[in-house]
Design a protein around this nucleic acid. Structure first.
Lengths: 126, 126
DNA sequence: GGTATAATGCAAATCCATTCGCATTAACAG
DNA sequence: CTGTTAATGCGAATGGATTTGCATTATACC
C-alpha cells in the first residue's frame, strides 16, 4: 500500500508555497529546507507519482527545460524572468487562437511563453 | 580556408526547399536524397557552422525539441501539426505583448507555439 | 513494540542528443 | 595534375537528465 512520507509531503509543500512551475533543482533545494536528506532520485520518483495522480503536470519550457506545476489552474501562460530565472504562471489569455494562424490551419491549442523581468526583480533594480 | 562541400550545399538546399524549421532527423533524411552518404555528425557540424554564420538559428520547441530555421524572417510564431509532425512558421503577430502579463511584469519578448492540423493534413482527412 | 514491506538514499546504469578522434576523402590553390 | 589540408564518415566518447538496483530506513498494520 502507498505510504505517506515526509519527503513527499515536503515536495508537495514546496509547490504549495512557491505557487509556480518548478524544476528539479529548485524542488530539491527548497525541499531540503524541510527534509535535509532529500535525494534527487526521491524527487524524481515522487514527481512521477504526483503526475500520475494528476496532482502535477509536466511542462516543457523552451528556456528552462522540464518544469512541474500544479494541475487544475486552467489555461494560462508562462513568464520567465531572466533576472531571477524563475517562471511564473500568468492568468488569463487574450489570444484569438484561430486568428493567430492563416486560413487553412486548424488551431486546437497554444502555448505562450513571455520573457522579461518579474515585478520583484524590477523593484530591486530601482 | 573554408571549402564548399556537396554535403553542406545539400543541407542548405533542404532548408530552401522545405521553408520551415527542421530537426536533425528531417535534415538528415531529406539531405540524403541528395548526398546519400550524408552523416549525422556532418549535419551537426554544418548546422553549427551555419548558425555561427547567421544563416540559421536554433529554436527550442516544447514538443519537438531542437529545431533549426533560416534567419531573417522577422518575428513569427510556430505551428506544430500533430498529424504530420511538421512545424511551420506563421507570419504576423497580433499579441499585445505588454497586455499579456499583469501590472508589474516587464515583458521584453515572447514565443507562441500553436498546435493543431496543418492545411495539407486537414485536406487529406476529407 | 514488532513486523512486513514501501520508500529512501546512494551510486551505478541508462538514455538520448551532441561532440570528438582519427583514418579516409575530396576541395582547390599552384 | 598534384599536394595540402579542410571536411567527411564512422564509431567511440561525452554530458546531462532520468532511472534503476540494492542495502537501509521508516511507515503503518498487528
Amino acid at each position: 500500500m502507498k505510504r505517506k512520507t515526509s519527503q513527499r509531503a515536503a515536495i508537495e509543500q514546496v509547490f504549495q508555497v512557491e505557487e509556480r512551475p518548478l524544476g528539479i533543482e529548485e524542488i530539491l533545494q527548497h525541499g531540503r529546507a524541510m527534509v535535509e536528506s532529500l535525494n534527487q532520485a526521491t524527487v524524481y520518483r515522487n514527481l512521477k507519482l504526483l503526475v500520475d495522480q494528476g496532482w502535477l503536470q509536466q511542462i516543457n519550457h523552451p528556456a528552462m527545460g522540464t518544469l512541474y506545476e500544479r494541475t487544475g489552474k486552467g489555461h494560462h501562460h508562462h513568464f520567465h524572468c531572466h533576472d531571477c530565472n524563475r517562471v511564473f504562471e500568468l492568468p488569463g489569455c487574450t489570444l484569438n487562437q484561430q486568428a493567430a494562424a492563416p486560413e487553412g490551419f486548424i488551431v486546437e491549442a497554444h502555448e505562450i511563453f513571455l520573457f522579461g523581468v518579474c515585478p520583484s526583480c524590477a523593484a530591486n533594480m530601482g
